[in-house]
Structure formats: structure tokens, C-alpha cells
């Protein structure tokens, strides 16, 4: 049950990821200003999602334990 919940969360997260970097959601983050950490908003937005994706994948793998 727990593993099914984790899988559903991961699938849900990547759907949100997909929506977040495409039109129309990405258009809300289209303007470059204000710079975030010296980076324009669209670049910072893309990097943020890569880092979130990394965290979710790590969580998914760690939650598997050593089931093999």
C-alpha cells in the first residue's frame, strides 16, 4: 500500500513537472526579471524543477529499500 502511494506521488509529481515547464504555466514565469540568484526567472524556474525532480527520484529510490 505504502509503495503504491509512493509510486502515485512520483507519477503525480512528474505530471506537475511536465505542466510546470510547458505552456500555459511556463508563460507565468516567462519574464526574465527579477533576477533570482543572478539568473533570469525562466532559467531559475527550469533549474528548480530539475532539482525537485532529483529530490523526488532520490526519495523514490530510498523508499524502495533493498527489495531486490
Amino acid at each position: 500500500m505504502k509503495s503504491r502511494w509512493r509510486a502515485s506521488f512520483a507519477v503525480g509529481f512528474f505530471i506537475v513537472y511536465c505542466v510546470a515547464v510547458m505552456w500555459p504555466v511556463a508563460s507565468w514565469f516567462a519574464e526574465p526579471k527579477p533576477l533570482i540568484g543572478g539568473l533570469p526567472v525562466p532559467l531559475a524556474w527550469s533549474i528548480l524543477w530539475i532539482i525537485l525532480g532529483f529530490v523526488v527520484l532520490i526519495g523514490l529510490e530510498c523508499s524502495r529499500g533493498d527489495r531486490e
Binding site: 512528474f14 513537472y17 511536465c18 515547464v21 510547458m22 516567462a30 526574465p32 533570469p40 525562466p42 532559467l43 527550469s46 533549474i47 524543477w49 530539475i50 525532480g53 532529483f54 527520484l57
Partner: peptide, 15 residues
């Protein structure tokens, strides 16, 4: 900014 599409698809493609 068009180049940012290259940044966006990698993790989505590999997941």
C-alpha cells in the same frame, strides 16, 4: 530563452 527547452526535457525524458 528558447534554449531552456533543452534544460526542461531531460529529467522528464529519463524519469
Amino acid at each position: 530563452a528558447a534554449a531552456f527547452y533543452i534544460l526542461s526535457y531531460g529529467v522528464l525524458g529519463i524519469a
